[in-house]
Design a protein around this nucleic acid. Structure first.
Lengths: 206, 206
DNA sequence: TGTACATCAGTGAACGCGCGTTCACTGATGTAC
DNA sequence: TGTACATCAGTGAACGCGCGTTCACTGATGTAC
């Protein structure tokens, strides 16, 4: 019985993933005010009403998608921080990976911005999203420690997270440039922070 | 005849302002997916159709509102940079003023984010908004020069603008804190950048 | 092995709603003689 | 000063549309005997 139940749960989660995949494809091809349950259902090849078998409403679907992608991103960054040996340029790698991930997962980023800007989420959703963000902070802190920063790395984590978000919001849609150029530009702008921080760390060591 | 024409133009611009004022009041009290032409008209005390006497469509109204506020903000920052004597902490003042302005003009910020995220503006609107952003960069550059920074102040301007945007997007709606605390938090996080930059300027001077 | 029944993912049609925008019109104001 | 006409800001009703969500149902699959 337990085996069967497990199978059921697995199946259910597979189907949820399928719907989330479709939602992301829609999110990354339409302006977000055009993303509708009908559109998502069409992309997934099911009836709009079927979505409600797996998600209680639209917000829950978007939140679940965001959390799924956040976990991917956090794992990727955590892996980089872990694998980088002391003395190697961990922050550059973290910055590059963050910017590349979000450029590749446009849908994820747009959902994030919607949540941050709308500010009318259910308490349950808010709680889940906040938990993810806090885990993200911890990974950034680990990176600063690895760089040899001895000051308050919590506020640095607040700073870099917001700074990277800002660069993505601000330059994601530079008119008249292709994606590659835009990504290069974003990385260059983000590394201003890394250079300043490194210069400070060296100075403090003296 | 010219005098009368001038009066007409003045009147027209006054009425546009009136509608923009109403739009901003609506924008700052409703989540932005609830901001409608009907709602704005109601707030302005006119019929929805009357808005179309002054603005060709919704996008044009939002763009005009954004540009009006941007000019206010840029003038404020430019004034601060101009009035601050050399050696005084110009960047702290600029940061504080930026964060306070945008916290006070929530509607402005939300429109900005919508534009940056949607990416489906008409070329005309895009051009006008870009022109404003470029003027903003120039003001930031002036501030860095005033601080005695001798390096590439253009990329610093790109950086600080995006960083401030990011801080506002990310922390504007921290759950469980009042506005005052949130503003203080944002200023603290933004000043990480100022501290690092100042440390670098001092080091370069040695 | 065959039959009756239970479960439940998935459906299609519909509900009620609010949206941006258009358009024929009204009525106040200004102009010409 | 009085009358006919032109202008045009502002209106109310309507257009067509797409939205999130609900619900009575179907039909495939699994279970019990």
């Amino acid at each position: 019985m337990s085996v069967l139940t497990d199978l059921k749960i697995k199946e259910r989660s597979d189907r949820k993933d399928l719907i989330i995949d479709a939602a992301e494809r829609v999110f990354s091809t339409r302006p977000f005010n055009r993303v509708s349950m009908r559109e998502i259902a069409g992309e997934a090849g099911i009836a709009p009403s079927s979505i409600y078998t797996y998600f209680p409403n639209q917000e829950a679907l978007f939140v679940e998608a965001t959390i799924r992608d956040s976990n991917l991103l956090i794992e990727e960054i955590a892996g980089i921080v872990e694998r980088t040996r002391a003395g190697r340029p961990v922050l550059d790698r973290v910055i590059d990976s963050f910017i590349e991930f979000i450029s590749k997962h446009d849908s994820y980023f747009r959902m994030m911005v919607v949540f941050m800007t709308i500010g009318s989420l259910s308490p349950e959703s808010l709680k889940r999203l906040n938990e993810v963000v806090r885990r993200g902070f911890r990974v950034f802190e680990a990176a600063f420690k690895k760089m040899g920063y001895r000051g308050n790395s919590r506020i640095l984590a607040y700073h870099i997270f917001a700074m990277l978000n800002g660069i993505l919001v601000t330059y994601r849609k530079l008119p008249g440039r292709n994606d590659e150029k835009i990504i290069a530009h974003m990385k260059r702008v983000a590394k201003v922070f890394r250079e300043l921080l490194q210069s400070k760390i060296r100075k403090d060591r003296q």
